[in-house]
Design a protein around this nucleic acid. Structure first.
Lengths: 103, 103
DNA sequence: ACTTCATATGACCGTCAAGGCATATGGCGG
DNA sequence: CCGCCATATGCCTTGACGGTCATATGAAGT
């Protein structure tokens, strides 16, 4: 069953996988090499990432090539959206503070 | 010990707490009422959120008032940053596709 | 000082997820 | 058709986490 996007991102190894896929698609073997984690572990994480829609999979000869899908990350970005006002507010407050310091 | 920001956000109840604190600071009791979760559970989640810097705590009479701190959320936003290029790229590709359709 | 209210903490339990190992699948070359 | 290579899956153990209940802390009021 598909897991929640935040739960998926909670795993450091999975985030590292996403990092590796950011610039280019990669085969499972390449990911294993780049991560220093056992192949079954990587495959399992890929399963989770696939089920949650973070990555898609294409079969090329004997290899499976994984590619990043931006969808779920956009969703997370969307979740963050209402919070961005906070930083803006904080920055405003900071500005006001600095302004009052200046004069 | 302080837990990783993504791990903290993986908990639905903790996200709901953050949601509640988005607009205004609240006492523990108010949070309990708004969440329908037992008070000890809420206190523990608040502990985690505090340790990770998501919230700060002020003591007012017998109550403890919690307020949202944007720091860790900004960090998450920063982590997302290099991925935003992907959506941009995707949109570009879509545009190009639509353009080629038009003519 | 004693009680009460608001919150924090500790102990205990059930659940779940991650890693390691062994093994199954499935395409490909000989 | 058989063995090999790349990847996936099952089983098992272990550790972390969340919930509940009971209890500790600590400030306020009487």
């Amino acid at each position: 069953m598909s897991t929640d996007a935040f739960t998926v991102l909670a795993e450091p190894t999975r985030r590292r996988i996403l990092d590796q896929l950011r610039d280019a698609e990669r085969s499972v073997g390449e990911l294993v090499d780049g991560l220093g984690v056992s192949q079954p572990a990587v495959s399992k994480h890929l399963r989770v990432l696939r089920d949650a829609g973070f990555v898609t999979c294409r079969t090329a000869a004997r290899q499976r090539i994984y590619r990043l899908d931006p969808g779920p990350l956009r969703a997370v970005d969307g979740w963050l959206d209402p919070y961005r006002r906070l930083w803006a507010r904080h920055l405003d407050a900071l500005e006001r503070h600095l302004d009052s310091q200046e004069q």
